[in-house]
Amino acid sequence: MSGEPVLEARGIVKRFGHVAALSGAHLTVHHGEVVALIGDNGAGKSTLIKVLSGVHPPDEGEIRLGGRAVAFSSPVDARRAGVETVYQDLAVADDLSVAANLYLGREIKRRGPLGRIGLLDKRAMRRGAAEALEQLGVRIPRVTTPISMLSGGQRQSVAVARAVVWATDVVILDEPTAALGVVQTRRVLELVERVRDAGMSVVLVSHNMPQVLEVADRVEVMRLGRRTARFAAAEATTDDLVAAMTGALTTESLD
């Protein structure tokens, strides 16, 4: 955890009309760590995620990627810069196959003139998708299966895998297990750990305190549009986190 943070948000302000969803929010993500971002409903977690992933441009503040200031004007910008996000509503195309979803917007074209007129190399994409899922330990029937035929956990795993495959630095996961059962949740958390072990940084938005303490290396707490506390997961308890979320405990100076 030394050196420049991989991703850093400094003093982010985001207003919607008269409502300030973020009023000077910070977030720090180091190389190869899982940072849990927690906070009560309305604390600004999702807004911060959307700012970091290029959905909303911030009104004030700075986003730094590997020490350099960046400005994302669209989700595509953020993805190009190496920040991939899995949104709560998943954003997979149910009717397309697993492989097609993994390569959505980044399809491999055939070589030569057929590729130049836009024909796809489906075989290469199938192979690539199968390899990537295998590596990440994601178990699905086949890469040609349409997403609509998968279970909730499998869908979530595919969505996460898609982000991981393309991310170079940071994967942001917004409530990845909110809609999942126990076994499926386990699978996704294992996937998160594998991603971290592969040297990627993960930002995990979650409501589930035990889960957060189990899988995260550090926890950052938001309240009323700001970061109010930071913990090393190994040293924190669920009570600490709840206290920080409700405002009974702060570790940050809120000037």
């Binding site: 949104y87 195309a93 009717d95 959505l104 399809e107 074209k109 796809l120």
Partner: peptide, 24 residues
Amino acid sequence: SQSRFGQHVYAMGSNLEAARRSGI
């Protein structure tokens, strides 16, 4: 069925927001 454009047509009909966020 074979072109990138066609793939995007299905994707847009399946989930327009997902298609947009994928840079289509």
